[in-house]
């Protein structure tokens, strides 16, 4: 099967709506198709990968740990927009530590999160062949 550049765009906070959770389910399935997959976290989407999520008070399952599994499926291009973080008073330190092991580099642990500014994000979007937004 052909390889295409797929981007999943996340712009919504988790839990208030189901989009973040069901988006993650799509991303995990996409790993089986050996496509060139990347994820964009912009606007409220950055809250999806915030650290310290605790859902005990709302009666929903905390699915944030699943993002940590993405690296095992070689989904390691998680683009986070700098301006979206700044607008929300957040920094990279507020996000989970998401990594992957590079088997071509002696299994060195490398960061999956790539902080990019808005102009770079626009450039990355412009290169995609299939953009699925949630």
């Amino acid at each position: 099967m052909a390889t295409k550049k797929f981007m999943f765009v996340n712009r919504k906070a988790p839990y208030g709506t189901v989009y973040a959770l069901e988006s993650l389910e799509v991303v995990l399935i996409s790993a089986a198709f050996e496509q060139d997959v990347s994820l964009a976290f912009i606007d409220d989407g950055v809250y999806q990968i915030a650290k310290g999520q605790d859902t005990t008070g709302i009666g929903q399952k905390n699915f944030s740990a699943t993002y940590k599994a993405l690296g095992d499926y070689e989904i390691n291009k998680l683009y986070v927009e700098k301006e979206s973080l700044e607008e929300r008073g957040l920094t990279l330190d507020d996000l989970m530590d998401l990594t992957w092991e590079d088997e071509d580099d002696d299994y060195e642990e490398k960061p999956s999160i790539h902080l990019v500014d808005r102009a770079d994000m626009a450039g990355i979007m412009a290169q995609q062949e299939v953009v699925i937004s949630f």
Partner: peptide, 18 residues
């Protein structure tokens, strides 16, 4: 869900309505 990804691979254009 694989049907969505496969659809994205096979089609010339993928459009999301939501």
């Amino acid at each position: 869900l694989g049907q969505l990804i496969e659809g994205g691979i096979q089609a010339d254009r993928t459009l999301v309505f939501g």
